[in-house]
């Protein structure tokens, strides 16, 4: 039991992202309203973004801005230790992923507007009835 708790505490970022992801996935599968599904989709994507952000973190490290080296280009001052700085690369990747998720969300909302104008509803079961009427 203590081993399991230890595992959960040591890798808590993984557990958190998986819980968030499952909340999003549940909303996408179980919810009846298209807008709620979209919110679920956004939670799903955000979970992955948080996962990436968390893997760049190191204990006792600081922001990846080189300190105490004004003007020079690393020739003066101390040698730069990578372990002292948080890995910025996953964060940079996530800037792109955020843009992608915003774009997807925008397209999906535009489509929801079109669906609503056509059928006057965003509930999936009502949409199914409207589609089978024709």
């Amino acid at each position: 039991m203590t081993e399991l708790v230890g595992l959960i505490v040591a890798k808590y970022n993984f557990w958190l992202y998986i819980i968030l992801m499952m909340i999003g996935l549940y909303a996408m599968i179980a919810k009846n309203n298209l807008m709620k599904k979209l919110v679920g989709m956004n939670i799903f994507q955000t979970a992955i973004i948080l996962f990436y952000v968390s893997i760049g973190y190191k204990h006792g490290a600081t922001l990846p801005i080189i300190q105490g080296d004004h003007g020079g280009h690393g020739t003066h001052g101390a040698v730069i230790h990578a372990a002292e700085y948080i890995n910025p690369l996953p964060h940079v990747l996530m800037l792109t992923a955020i843009v992608v998720s915003v774009a997807t969300f925008g397209v999906a909302m535009a489509l929801c507007v079109r669906v609503y104008r056509r059928y006057q509803t965003l509930e999936e079961d009502e949409l199914r009835i409207r589609l089978s009427e024709k």
Partner: peptide, 29 residues
């Protein structure tokens, strides 16, 4: 009407697919 619904369904499933791929790349990284 119909094409919009089809595109929305495609978005929901396509986003899950792309996100899985992205997660996999995260583990590789």
């Amino acid at each position: 009407g119909r094409s919009h619904l089809a595109a929305l369904n495609y978005i929901f499933i396509g986003v899950i697919g792309a996100s899985f791929y992205l997660l996999g790349v995260g583990y590789l990284y």
